[in-house]
Computed example of a mutant assay.
Amino acid sequence: MLYQKSWARAWLGIGLVWFLGAIALAPSNKVYQQGLVLFLWLPTLVLAWSARAVLVEAWRRQAALWGSVLLLMAWCAVSLFWSSAEEPVREAKRLVYIVVFLLAFPLLAQAGTTRIRHLLQLGSGLLAIAALISIVHFYGLQDHPLIGRLYGIGEISHPILGAYVVGCAALLLLYQLPHQRIYQLGWILALACLGAFIMLSQSRGAVLALLLTVLIAPLWLRTRYSSTLAALALVATGLTFYVAYDLISARGSSYRPEIFAAALQMIGEHPWTGLGLGASYKVFAAATEFDHTHNMFTHVAVELGWPGMLLWTAVWLFTLAEIVRARHLLLGKLLLGLWIFSTLAMQFDAASLTATPRAEWFISWLVVGLVMLLPWGRAENDACGKISGST
């Protein structure tokens, strides 16, 4: 089969690494998007026919998840009929991009979950390099004061959304300690760069989401290592509050309660239809104008109404259900942490679910896509169990 060829697996693997690392390291967003077409969208479409049995199996094993995704895409498409979006065809095309992106993951799964974890580590390592470059560029070359809020390079230039991307990379690395000492040094340096980026971005939402995830991780990881990390995180948080409380509290609540109240009012004006996919809107709160609701769920409700928000919630909950089914796998445990981090992050910012791939995809569609690897991970684990049981 074509999709089983080594070059086909390498092509898709490059696509996954490009999605992760090039968001910051690509010279421009246009190059990043073109790379995704070349390394991820194109191979998925080329290999889809030869891998049709795999895609049918993906549907069979995760019918509820795939069904909820397709229903959400269908409702998004229907909402274009009443949307004020300037380019409805472009909005519809982006929905196809999302589906093709997700179709890539059952194909990627054929390379084995160990290889996938290595690709995730590589992509996260590239983001660590991007974090280091960002720090050197911002504080060294541009000579900003150390208390200045860090703006990263590439598409991690937004302090909040960039911190979410880097937070995802940190979680994908944090609980995968390499066995070889030479790799352990690189692992420590990568985590140090990622952690420094998150702290220097001064994104309280990202820090809180990461902190809470690390604190409760021992509940499912059940290792001394995860418990030690949780204890260290708690101590570090206490010291940070003691040293930099004024800096942390200077921005107050950043109008989040007022924005949330205004968003609920907007949802109430169009509860069933929303404004339509891609419709631009402004949120007026506390005598200030905001570009979006700073919350993924309320943003979806404003655009797509209650039906759209319920469908997105269904996608997200079915994603959790698949993770729980695979909680005995290392990849399942990693994804549970990523799901919790992403859920918390969505509450503080992120208002782009169906736009072209960007930072928000790391806490939405990337998580859904990675979960679509899990059925093959469970199959691998069952096969290994049978082999060990027969020897």
Score class of each variant (00 low, 15 high):
Q4F: 05
K5S: 12
S6Q: 02
W7S: 03
L12M: 09
G13L: 03
G15I: 04
G21K: 00
A24Y: 01
A24L: 00
L25A: 06
N29M: 06
T44F: 01
V46F: 08
L47F: 09
W49G: 00
L55I: 05
G67T: 02
M73L: 15
W75L: 13
A77V: 12
W82T: 14
S84K: 12
E86A: 14
R90Q: 13
L102S: 12
L108K: 06
Q110Y: 04
H118I: 08
L119F: 09
S124A: 14
A128K: 05
A131N: 00
S134W: 00
S134I: 02
I135E: 07
F138R: 05
Y139P: 15
H144K: 15
I156V: 01
Y164R: 09
G167Q: 11
A170Y: 03
Q180R: 13
R181E: 07
A190K: 04
L191V: 01
L191M: 08
A192K: 09
L194Y: 06
A196Q: 06
S201E: 10
T213W: 08
P218I: 02
R224H: 05
R224M: 04
S226W: 06
T228M: 12
T237A: 12
D246Q: 13
F260L: 14
L264T: 00
G276A: 08
A279D: 05
F284L: 14
H294W: 04
H299P: 00
A301E: 12
A301Y: 07
W312G: 00
V315N: 02
A326S: 11
L331D: 03
L331R: 05
T343N: 01
A355E: 15
F362Q: 10
I363N: 06
L370I: 07
R378S: 05
N381F: 14
T391I: 07
